[in-house]
């Protein structure tokens, strides 16, 4: 294959460094990183206490990104996310106080607890990479990356993200329980929070932007686009209730590029598509009866399409 670029080497060591904090979850860490590189946003859906926050924090620390955490609650207002203008008496004018959204990496914890109004404030910022309050538009820092978490159970009194909102996330992953060995190490090891505090950033926003640019240059052959289209076409009929949108197709391509780049390659292979497809398409697919076992659906889709 190709010789890995220095950036890819750095990213590889970033994966390893985060892997020392979040044990036994290399694949998920890679997906999260690929998501950043593809300029997308990540939704982690899992039970509490599975390390969602730790992952986000460790990632931010390793990538050298400014990190803000927003805990979504039922009474969260858009201004709590975006910021407010307060009248400054000395200067006799309104001064904007930026909200927590003005950071490189945002952890939006338990987004389904907030009202749709607050959710849409976040989602609009994710989509536009800018914030408009009181008639003024302010750009968000670049890179800008949101990790939102959602608790799948205890849906009473929550506002689960509708499908249209889910589509805004490039990937949705679940962390799941660690395996026995990883759990043992976690139990025996030192405090994760302290470890994160002592982590060395391996990248900085500028090199991450450069990496994002490199990812967009990863080559996609005609044969591979054929494969992507075959996958999309299969998802739109037969066994599947809701097919993949064109946006989903684009997401698949971007994510595959990022995955290939992380593997140190300059071209996308069918394996890259297969690796990212469950995360990219899982929250967009529906079975014939409307059920949504993401992983099973994605694997069924992959198995049913021959690589052209």
């Amino acid at each position: 294959m190709d010789t890995a670029t220095p950036l890819a080497v750095m990213l590889e060591s970033a994966v390893r460094q985060v892997g020392q904090i979040v044990l036994g979850k290399e694949r998920e860490i890679r997906l999260a990183l690929a998501c950043v590189l593809a300029r997308g946003h990540l939704l982690i859906e899992d039970l509490p206490g599975m390390g969602k926050t730790t992952l986000a924090h460790a990632l931010a620390q390793t990538l050298g990104l400014q990190f803000h955490r927003i805990q979504f609650t039922a009474d969260l207002l858009p201004a709590d996310i975006l910021g407010v203008s307060v009248f400054d008496r000395e200067r006799s004018q309104f001064v904007f106080h930026p909200g927590p959204i003005f950071a490189h990496l945002i952890l939006a914890d338990e987004v389904n607890r907030a009202t749709p109004k607050a959710q849409s404030a976040l989602l609009e910022a994710m989509e536009e990479h800018q914030v408009t309050t009181e008639g003024e538009t302010r750009p968000l820092p670049a890179p800008f990356f949101v990790i939102a978490t959602q608790n799948p159970t205890q849906q009473v009194g929550t506002f689960p993200l509708p499908e249209s909102q889910l589509d805004r996330f490039l990937m949705r992953i679940a962390l799941g329980y660690p395996d026995a060995q990883a759990e043992r190490m976690l139990l025996a090891g030192e405090d994760r929070r302290e470890m994160i505090a002592h982590m060395q950033p391996l990248l900085d926003p500028a090199s991450l932007l450069a990496a994002q640019h490199k990812v967009s240059e990863v080559f996609i052959a005609e044969a591979l686009l054929d494969y992507v289209q075959a996958l999309i076409a299969r998802s739109r009929g037969g066994k599947f209730g809701a097919g993949l949108s064109p946006r989903a197709g684009l997401a698949l391509v971007h994510a595959s590029r990022a995955w290939a780049f992380l593997a140190g390659r300059s071209q996308v292979l069918p394996e890259d598509v297969q690796a990212v497809l469950p995360a990219v398409a899982g929250h967009r697919l529906r079975g014939p009866a409307g059920e949504a076992d993401a992983e099973a659906l994605a694997q069924a889709l992959l198995a049913s399409v021959a690589i052209p």
Binding site: L269, E271, L302, S304, V305, A306, I307
Partner: peptide
């Protein structure tokens, strides 16, 4: 396998 990529 039909869906098996070259690397796999």
């Amino acid at each position: 396998l039909p869906s098996e990529g070259p690397l796999d």
